[in-house]
Design a protein around this nucleic acid. Structure first.
Lengths: 336, 336
DNA sequence: TAACAAAATGCAAGCGCTTACATTAAATAT
DNA sequence: ATATTTAATGTAAGCGCTTGCATTTTGTTA
C-alpha cells in the first residue's frame, strides 16, 4: 500500500535521511561510495520521492500550469502539446485546467494551480478581471501570456499581434476588389483575441476609406453550427457582402457549408476567409484562405520563456511570433 | 512573496487551524456562524490551501493523471476536455502527459505522474510493456483504460469495442455490394486500437467469405499526408479495390483528398470510410461515412470511474460505450 | 605525528496541512 | 436546576522532505 519513504531508504542504506536527500538533489555533495550505495537502495525499493513532502520542504514544485479556454479547440490542443513536450524535456510536469471562456472560472483554476505549487503559469490572452491580476501580482506569480502580443512591458508575452494579422488579411480582401465586407466574429466578450481581430478588420477598412465602423459584424461562438447561423443572419441584409471575413476557421467553415447548402458558389458568389489555419482549413472545399498562426512554435516559445523566468524571475523577454496570410481558394477577385 | 497559510487565517479569524481546515473540507461540521467568519477571512486574504501540505497530511492529492499519446489529435483532446470538466466538478486537478505513442516514454510519464501523487491514472488502450504493468501493480496504482474495451476483469475499462465497431462498418460496406476491399490502417505497433480495427475488418470479411486474411492493408501514421501516400500505394495494385476502409478519419480524409486530386469520384469510383467521427468528417467533401465514437462521453465516463475507484479501490465497473456507423456520402452502392 | 582546514555526514527543526483525541459549549433529559 | 448526551472547537502529533548548523571524518601541512 504505502510507498517507501526517504527514511526507509536511509535506514536500509545505513545513512541519514539528509544524505539520501542529497544523493537525489545534489549528488556531487556526496562521496561516490555513499552515493552508489544509496542509489542502489533507491532502485531496489523503487523509491519515488513524495511530491507533497518535497514541495512543502523546498517550496518548489517543478510544475507549471496552463489555463486555457478549452482543449476542445485544435489551436489550444496543438499549442499545449508543444508546451508539454518542451516542459517534459526539462522534467517539468504540466498541469492543465480549462476556463471555458469564463473569467470567474479562470481565476478559480488559477487559484487551484497556484495552490498546488505551480512554479509558473501559461495564460491565454490578456482579458481577465482585475481581481485575477491582483491575485497574480499579490502572489508574485510568474506567468506568460500566449496567443496575443502587445508591446507592453507590464506582461510577458509569447504570442502574435491579432490586430495586425486581421488588418493584413482584410487588406488582402480589399486588394482583391471587395468593397462590401462583413464579418463573422468570435464572441468578443472577455476575449481579447476575438476583439482584436474585429478591430484589425475595422482598421483596415477605415484605412481604405470603407467605413469600418459601419461594417456588419455578427458574433458567434466557436462551432460550425454557429458559423452557419451567422451566415444566415448576414445574408438577410442587403446589399449582401461580397466577402465575409471570419474570426476563426471553424466559423469560416460553417459559413462555407451554409453557403454551399444555399447554392452559392465560393468564391464566385461570396468570398470567405478564416483565421488560425487549422487542419480543417486545407481540407474544406473550397480550401480556405486564412491567417496562419504558428501554434506549435508559440507553445514551445511560451514554455521556454516560462522555464527561463523560473530561474530568473526578471528574465522576461516577450516573444512576438509572426503570422501570415495563406492564400487558398475561398477568396476570389472582384472584377470592376 | 509568501502566501497566507492556514495559520494566518486561523489567527485572523480567532479560531484554531483545525476549525479553518474543517471549514474548507467538511463545512457541515462547523457551526454556520463560525464558518461564515472564517470564510470571510479566507476571501479577504485570498487564501489558497497549499497542495503539498494537504497531500502530505491527508495522503491524498486530489489529482489524477492522464497519459495520452498526443493532445494533437482531436479525439484525445476532446476526450481530455471532458475528463477535465468532470474532474473539476469534484475539485480534482488533471495532470497531463503525452507518450507520443512510445511505450518507454509512457512508463516514464506514468512514473512522473505517480511521483507527483496522482490518485489515479487514465491510460489509453491496453498495449503497454509488462514492465509498465508491473509498476502499476506493485504500486497498486488505480487506473482506468480508455478508448478500448474488453470483457476482461483484469483491468477497468471506459471504452468501446474497436473490433466490433470495425466489423460493423465493414459489414455495411459489404452490404453495399463491395467485394474488393482494402484498408488504410493506423500504425498497429504498440497500438491495440489500430490493431483491433484491422482485426475487425478481417473478421467481417471472413464472415462474408471474402478472405480477410488476404486483404491489402497499408499502415500509415496519423496525418493527412500519410493518408494520401497510403492511397497511392493501394492504387498501385490491381484490381483496384472499390472500397477503402480507413483506421481513422484523418487517414480517410487524406485518402479522399488524394483520390480527388487523381480525378477519381467518390463514391462512384471508390468508396472510402473513416473511424472516429471527428468534426472534419462532416465537413470534407464528400461527407465521410464513419464510425461515431462518443469521445466526450467516454472522457466523462473514465473520469467518473476513476473518481469512484478513488473512494473504493474495488469499485470497478467497466463501462462499455456504444459506437455506431454514421452513413454519409463517401460510401456508395455497387450495383451488380 | 600533531594541528588544523576542508569535506562529508548527521541532527533536528520546520514547511502547511489534516485528524485523532481532549476539551468546552450547547442541547436535552431528568 | 442539575445531570447527561451531543455538537463544536481546540490541541498537538505527525505526513515526507529539505536544509542550516553541528559533528565527524578525511586530507593537508608543518
Amino acid at each position: 500500500m504505502s510507498s517507501p519513504t526517504l527514511e526507509d531508504v536511509a535506514r536500509r542504506a545505513g545513512v541519514s535521511t539528509a544524505t539520501v536527500s542529497r544523493c537525489l538533489n545534489t549528488p556531487d555533495s556526496v562521496v561516490p561510495n555513499t552515493r552508489d550505495k544509496v542509489l542502489r537502495v533507491v532502485a531496489e525499493l523503487g523509491y519515488t520521492p513524495h511530491f507533497g513532502g518535497r514541495a512543502l520542504a523546498s517550496n518548489r514544485s517543478n510544475t507549471i500550469g496552463a489555463v486555457i479556454p478549452t482543449m476542445d479547440n485544435a489551436i489550444f490542443a496543438t499549442g499545449l502539446q508543444a508546451v508539454q513536450e518542451t516542459l517534459a524535456e526539462a522534467n517539468v510536469t504540466l498541469l492543465v485546467a480549462s476556463s471555458c471562456y469564463d473569467p470567474e472560472r479562470e481565476l478559480e483554476q488559477i487559484r487551484a494551480l497556484v495552490g498546488r505549487g505551480a512554479d509558473g503559469l501559461i495564460l491565454i490572452g490578456i482579458a481577465r478581471t482585475q481581481k485575477t491580476y491582483d491575485f497574480l501580482h499579490r502572489r508574485q506569480i510568474t506567468y506568460v501570456i500566449a496567443w496575443n502580443y502587445r508591446s507592453d512591458e507590464k506582461h510577458c508575452f509569447a504570442g502574435f499581434d491579432n490586430v495586425e494579422a486581421a488588418e493584413r488579411i482584410t487588406k488582402q480582401v480589399i486588394d482583391y476588389g471587395h468593397r462590401n465586407i462583413a464579418m463573422i466574429a468570435g464572441v468578443t466578450e472577455y476575449n481579447d483575441r476575438a476583439t482584436d481581430r474585429v478591430i484589425g478588420v475595422r482598421n483596415a477598412l477605415n484605412l481604405a476609406g470603407l467605413a469600418g465602423d459601419q461594417m456588419q459584424v455578427v458574433e458567434a461562438s466557436y462551432s460550425l453550427k454557429k458559423g452557419e447561423e451567422a451566415l444566415d443572419k448576414i445574408l438577410q441584409r442587403s446589399p449582401q457582402p461580397t466577402a465575409i471575413i471570419c474570426g476563426n476557421d471553424v466559423l469560416a467553415v460553417g459559413a462555407i457549408n451554409k453557403a454551399k447548402q444555399l447554392g452559392m458558389r465560393i468564391p464566385e458568389d461570396v468570398s470567405i476567409t478564416g483565421f488560425d489555419d487549422i487542419e480543417l482549413a486545407a481540407v474544406v472545399e473550397p480550401r480556405l484562405t486564412t491567417v496562419h498562426v504558428p501554434h506549435k512554435r508559440m507553445g514551445k516559445a511560451a514554455a521556454r520563456l516560462l522555464l527561463a523566468m523560473r530561474d530568473d524571475r526578471k528574465n522576461c523577454h516577450s516573444i512576438k511570433l509572426e503570422t501570415h496570410t495563406v492564400l487558398r481558394d475561398s477568396l476570389g477577385t472582384i472584377l470592376k
